[in-house]
Write a protein that binds this DNA or RNA. Sequence first.
DNA 1: CAGTGGTCTAGACCACCCC
DNA 2: GGGTGGTCTAGACCACTGA
Lengths: 234, 234
Amino acid sequence: MSRELRAKVLQGEYADGQQLPTEAELSQSYGVSRQTVRRAFQDLVADELVYRVPGRGTFARSPRHGYVRQIGSIDDLMGLSEDTGLEVVDPLQRQVDLISAGRLRLGSDVVYRARFLRIHDGSAFCSTTVYLPPDVGRQLGAVEELTTRGATTTFTIIGLLEKRLGVQIAEAQQSITVASADDELAQALGCRVGHPLLRIDRLYLNGNGDGLELAVSHFLPEQYSYRISLRRST
Amino acid sequence: MSRELRAKVLQGEYADGQQLPTEAELSQSYGVSRQTVRRAFQDLVADELVYRVPGRGTFARSPRHGYVRQIGSIDDLMGLSEDTGLEVVDPLQRQVDLISAGRLRLGSDVVYRARFLRIHDGSAFCSTTVYLPPDVGRQLGAVEELTTRGATTTFTIIGLLEKRLGVQIAEAQQSITVASADDELAQALGCRVGHPLLRIDRLYLNGNGDGLELAVSHFLPEQYSYRISLRRST
DNA sequence: CAGTGGTCTAGACCACCCC
DNA sequence: GGGTGGTCTAGACCACTGA
């Protein structure tokens, strides 16, 4: 039920800041309790797809009213590899990893993991570890570029996901912070151990809110800065 | 109850990924129902302060405690100070600064500069230096909170700009990278010299593309991570 | 197996909004 | 007032974990 509601909102069913059905209406039409509806709404509010005003109702976040969220679109992320190469350091393989499995909101502890280096002008400036849910990982296991150590590609993983698996990425959640280079990262990036790195985690979700990919990247700050532009729409 | 629990987690009561009490235990010790405990946990999970594994338990997120905030629109930037305090370290004053003047695309070398500390839960987690064009700086010079060293406020500069000067901020350009703490920053933030910091530069523009404010912030990465959510426009 | 969190139901009272 | 969401209670069943 929460899936369906989320999908409806993402598909623009209630665009223009329209009012959504009330909790009572939804609980009746879906045949669930009001608490279940509330639980679904909590997630939508947390993701800022919807806002609620006590005593008035629930409204879809509209791009037309007030401020627009983000410019710095998912398509921009997908274009990241256009002028950079991706080299396979650790091929895609099955792995038990509690933390990444949790962040992908999986039921199990099993993920598929691969590690890459991003190359620009002949030098590595970023190390990326990609975690995939088991079903996604299995399907991408057939892609030669991901299973051959040392292979290089200009694909992005999300590009592959959309093209080969036909899934649609609707959302990306990013978290940006600072990390220190450990032995492995220092060797991969050619910096000293302890060197400060820009760490960017990206969680890609489909329209139902299922995690499709978790990418943990460490950038050399000397060669990369993250730029984003926020715009107000009038 | 949710407040107390959150405070305990933030204060590192369960640091090192320790296991938290179970829902049953908490509901008994606080004298509330299990659903109330669950509701409190949902917020902690949403803020990534805690993660849960079905059948195993609830665990504090490893070493990273402190302040997590989702920023995805200009509105969010303006609301940043809602639950943080801003302390004036250097009051607003006229200054010659070629670099910041250039970034504000001014014709002259004169800017107005002020320096702040962002406080959360009694500790500084961010140092911000704000640069304003001369005309803007002059008009804000009348604001007492900005000219008194040691004063604290919950305003944001851009909030003041929009309210007092009636200007409209149409765009914000951000650049995120890593910087090392110099003497001044180390002292202000209470870290060692050379400590890696998350540096976020924000340039606010009006609809004509004129620079209204340049804010250079250095965050303690242990207490702050920058989160943003991108959504595909349909 | 007992214990964990995940999900759900069916009620309740409240503060708030708007008519 | 009647309708909205905010909060809470007291149960229930499930899938999964770990010993």
